[in-house]
Nucleic acid binder design. Structure first.
Lengths: 132, 132, 132, 132
DNA sequence: TTTT
DNA sequence: TTTT
């Protein structure tokens, strides 16, 4: 009935922007989110969280974000279940973003024209999770 | 750097309460969280989200919650990566709860003595609002 | 750049549904949200938080919610500053809701036809804070 | 029963660090949080939100943050009611922070030794994710 | 009293 | 496959 997640982290690689057969843009990216404490070996680990952005938000993400950029993502956690080729059940967990804010400025010469310190929001109400 | 998730949903089955070798209680449970819209067949789907509660919160969950109960869970999303027996990489996504609130009353004869409409929090509760 | 609040609480009174001169519906309501700990006298206090819902969501709130109902509200915290008649500066803090979920069923004979256990979301993207 | 707010914004001035008569540190600061849309005059407004941090978190805030710094604050919204000298009822809304993360680096020569890109949390940090 |  |  309520499913809300807010993350701040850095992109582990450049986003991938693709299009559905119907031409709907969808960007995939992965965030490294540092855990708030050290593990038993005294190291600070991170969670690597897959995110998806659809439509206009997806295009903004795909066109302006790059590996290493710091962002705040708001969305919901979606769990998809499927059967693998070997017949075992698998699950995919991903955050369906409805807002992505850029929290640092791009490094020089990275993405010309990228909107520094600007956020994008996806307020249009569509089914954000076509099975693509 | 920030990882916060808030869910409202119903337990898909009774929680499992176990103990680490060191005797630390840990409860596992799964929530069905209805999606906010219908899919293309007009049906309302749900995400089935695995949750974990440690220590005192784990015991409360294990002792007082049952299948079907409505709860609000606050926590963080944790992704664990591991290698399966067949050598493939797998991931486990689970919400590490630091607060679980009970939003309905148990059905009659369910769990004698369960604290209806009562929440439990993993945090130490300081009066953060002395009138200073 | 990011402003997100999630509350679970009970309405302290019936909501007030009004309309702007342009006919836009807006519902005002107040939530009692129990604090997570007891104060120094051992009593559990609550925060009384003013909320506002616009348009279709406002009508749903105004038509289906009543004093005492348990709800989950998602929105943003808005602070309006103004000058009182005596020339002093005052502030109004209110939560602009973009989603309200009903977490209990109405008491018998309360609101005929009210959608029990149903949530409403306001996904349309408008300026949610006309100075009304 | 649940009261969670997450903000990203900039300090409108240097924080004030004070101490209760019992010696408990408490820092007050105010955040400018840009609204996600423009008003009817096409200008982007901000909400100015008062925040409070207690104890160790308060000291970190008081000692390391300065006007203009970008932070993420997690906490709860607290409403205090009181009677003014003229007999009228007033309310104070403030966010009681339990985590403050620094999202930019201090400007040169600002606060020597300040922990750049480091967050502080009020919570006790248990390894909530023993591999069990 | 308002930040970039 | 992992970010600063």
């Amino acid at each position: 009935m309520l499913n809300r997640i807010i993350l701040i982290g850095r992109l582990t690689r450049d986003p991938e922007l693709r299009y559905t057969p119907q031409g709907v843009p969808v960007a995939s990216f992965s965030l490294a989110v540092d855990r708030p404490f050290a593990n038993q070996q005294g190291q600070r680990e991170a969670d690597f969280i897959d995110c998806v952005a659809w439509r206009k938000l997806g295009e903004t993400v795909g066109n302006h974000l790059t590996k290493g950029r710091l962002v705040a993502v708001e969305g919901r956690l979606q769990i998809r279940s499927y059967e693998a080729q070997d017949g075992t059940k698998r699950k995919v967990a991903e955050v369906i973003a409805d807002s992505v804010r850029f929290l640092d400025r791009p490094r020089d010469g990275q993405v010309p024209g990228s909107p520094a310190d600007v956020g994008m929001t996806d307020d249009v109400a569509f089914p954000d999770d076509l099975p693509f």
